[in-house]
Amino acid sequence: WRFDREALPEDLISRGLAEEDPNAPYGLRLTIEDYPFASDGLVLWDILKQWVTNYVNHYYPQANLIECDEELQAWWSEIKNVGHGDKKDEPWWPELNTPNDLIGIVTTIIWVTSGHHAAVNFGQYSYAGYFPNRPTIARSKMPTEDPTDEEWEDFLNKPEEALLKCFPSQLQATKVIAVLDVLSNHSPDEEYIGTNIEPFWKDEPVINAAFEVFSGKLKELEGIIDARNADCNLKNRNGAGVMPYELLKPFSEPGITGKGVPYSISI
């Protein structure tokens, strides 16, 4: 784990899924253009970063204010030295000396606890609730792994029995399905990103206006994702047997919906 690679652009680059390209949208050229997590995620990342940029630049108009803010520096020190004490001496921790440093740090933290978490969490039931699609355990070896003559003959005669012996038992599968149901569920009082403004933000005209822009862009993202899911050229999110990719749609109804980006992780 490296904090500097938790930012979405750096994450994609480090995994060989994107390259820096100043002429490409968001400064990245995707290795796989039809990669829903990356393409939707970069839009959300940019929206988050713009919101954080407006906020930080309003309260820290001069660079030296960052270095002089003892409370802010203590916050960052605690994250590195206490929260991640096992990695406190790693050389890759970002410095916190300028507004741009703070923008990068805060955007990364917000992304991890909102978009990234939503993408890896709220689709679990949809993708793995039908356990043959993603069995959580194999109870027997593959039939081709050093079979006896009898085992191989049984497999050729009744392959479905070999498959059922390999799959989780009914009890094992039921337990996992129940857990995935809980993890993928949105509560009725879930707070989604960009929906509720803090009272003191509303009292500050510049921040209130920035939040309105932020909230509006999130609504635009909903439409962008809907349009992409309707594009028959995007085979990883459209077509027979292919689930539309909605995990980074910002808003959702209660229940298991496979969409919705809450502002934090509650587990």
Rank of each mutant, 00 (worst) to 15 (best):
G16D: 04
N97D: 09
N157W: 01
W201R: 09
P262R: 11
L12H: 05
A240R: 10
L72S: 10
E190R: 12
D146E: 13
P36R: 08
G129V: 00
V112A: 12
W45E: 00
A209N: 13
E222V: 15
G83Q: 08
I32K: 15
K80H: 05
H116C: 02
L72K: 06
N196I: 14
L44G: 02
E220K: 06
I224A: 00
F251V: 01
A240K: 12
L163G: 00
A24F: 01
N64P: 00
W76N: 08
T107L: 09
S114L: 02
A7D: 12
D146H: 09
L218H: 09
N81Q: 13
K217T: 02
F251I: 05
C166N: 12
E191L: 15
A63R: 13
L183R: 12
I105G: 03
D154E: 15
N121A: 13
W45Q: 03
L44A: 11
Y55K: 01
I137H: 05
T148W: 04
D181R: 10
A128T: 00
P94T: 06
G85F: 11
L42W: 08
H117Q: 13
E95F: 11
L234Y: 06
I109V: 12
E151N: 02
P61D: 04
P168N: 14
L221R: 07
P147F: 07
W75M: 10
L8D: 02
L44F: 14
W75H: 09
A119C: 06
A18E: 04
H58W: 10
A178I: 01
V120T: 13
Y130N: 12
L102G: 04
T148H: 04
E204K: 03
Y35A: 10
K80P: 03
E253D: 15
M243V: 00
I13A: 07
E246Q: 14
T113A: 05
I265Q: 08
L48S: 03
G241P: 03
F200Y: 13
V242C: 06
E198K: 13
T174C: 07
N208C: 14
R237M: 11
M142D: 15
L12R: 08
Q124F: 00
I47N: 07
Y60F: 15
P168V: 04
Q50K: 14
V179F: 06
R2E: 09
K217F: 05
A118Q: 01
G27L: 01
I79Y: 10
N196L: 12
Y26F: 14
I47S: 08
E20H: 07
G129L: 07
G83D: 07
Y130C: 00
D11S: 09
Y55W: 10
G123I: 03
A162I: 02
M243H: 05
E70C: 03
R139C: 00
D101S: 07
V43I: 14
K235H: 11
I177W: 08
G194V: 08
D40N: 15
Q73S: 09
Y127T: 04
D40T: 04
S215W: 03
G216H: 00
P254R: 03
F214K: 11
W45V: 00
E220D: 15
E10N: 15
V120L: 06
A74H: 04
V112Y: 02
V56M: 05
L221Y: 10
I105F: 08
L248K: 07
N229T: 02
Y245F: 10
P262N: 04
S187D: 12
E153P: 00
L171G: 01
Y130K: 06
V82R: 11
P188D: 02
P61N: 09
P25R: 08
L234Q: 11
E67W: 01
Y35E: 06
P22K: 13
